[in-house]
Simulated assay, not measured.
Amino acid sequence: MRILLVEDDSMIGEVVHDALRREGHATDWVRDGAQADAALATTDYDLLLLDLGLPRKGGLEVLRALRARGLGLPVLIATARDAVSERVAGLDAGADDYIVKPYDLDELLARVRALLRRAHGRAEPAYVWGEVRVVPATHEATRAGQPVQLSAREWAVLEPLLARPGRVLSRQQLEDKLYAWGEEVSSNAVEVYIHGVRKKLGAGLIENVRGLGYLVPKAAQDGEKG
């Protein structure tokens, strides 16, 4: 998934940025509110991880402007402001969740996963399609009951397709989930990683839609189990 991290503390930003990338997310990191506005205006994100005490433009202003434009992406506020009034203000401004620094990194990542899951209308963490079972939150996959190891890039291609079975995503949309700013984009990267997923989990899990892109068949959703 594509995530925008807005954090002006370099030490915290580096730790969170690296953790999100290890989870397989293409993560862009900006350090002030004005940069956040510019990024949100030009890039389609799946989640915003937002500090409040930012240079140039405060986090609440960024959030209010985002909601005023009608953008519905999930927003997780991560801030040192722990007063109840601050939490209420953040949630009333349109945040979906609020976590106070210093926070446990594992909890932060779990909240990110939960928000992404809810954003795609899925309460259950597991996806089942035939003999394949996939749990994106823990990066666990099995085929006919046997564990299957997918690379971070293979997960990055598979997760957005699994989020909405039956929905076609173009090659460009999948590239946007794979690469953050400044990363070199290989011309056939999407095809390479989809080939890897098919080889490990079965050729039928990801279908080609000629001239449009790729999808996971709706049968994956119909057969889902918790």
Rank of each mutant, 00 (worst) to 15 (best):
T42P: 02
T43E: 11
D46P: 06
L48G: 01
L49W: 01
L52D: 06
G53F: 09
L54A: 03
P55I: 06
P55L: 05
K57T: 05
G59V: 02
L60M: 11
A65Y: 00
A65H: 07
R67I: 03
R67P: 06
A68L: 05
G70L: 09
G70M: 09
L71C: 10
G72T: 14
G72K: 13
L73M: 12
P74Q: 02
V75W: 00
A78F: 12
A80C: 08
D82R: 15
A83N: 11
V84H: 14
V84L: 15
L91E: 01
L91R: 07
D92H: 12
G94K: 02
D96S: 08
D96K: 00
Y98I: 04
D104H: 13
L105A: 10
E107F: 05
E107I: 07
E107K: 05
E107H: 10
A110I: 08
V112Y: 09
A114I: 02
L115P: 01
L115D: 02
L116S: 08
R118W: 01
H120M: 05
H120N: 08
G121K: 08
R122I: 01
A123F: 10
A123I: 09
P125Y: 02
Y127D: 12
Y127I: 15
E131C: 08
R133L: 15
R133H: 12
R133Q: 13
V134Y: 06
V135A: 10
A137T: 11
A137C: 08
A141S: 08
A144G: 10
Q146I: 12
P147T: 05
L150N: 03
R153M: 13
W155E: 04
A156D: 03
V157R: 01
E159S: 10
E159N: 12
L161A: 03
A163I: 05
A163C: 10
R164F: 01
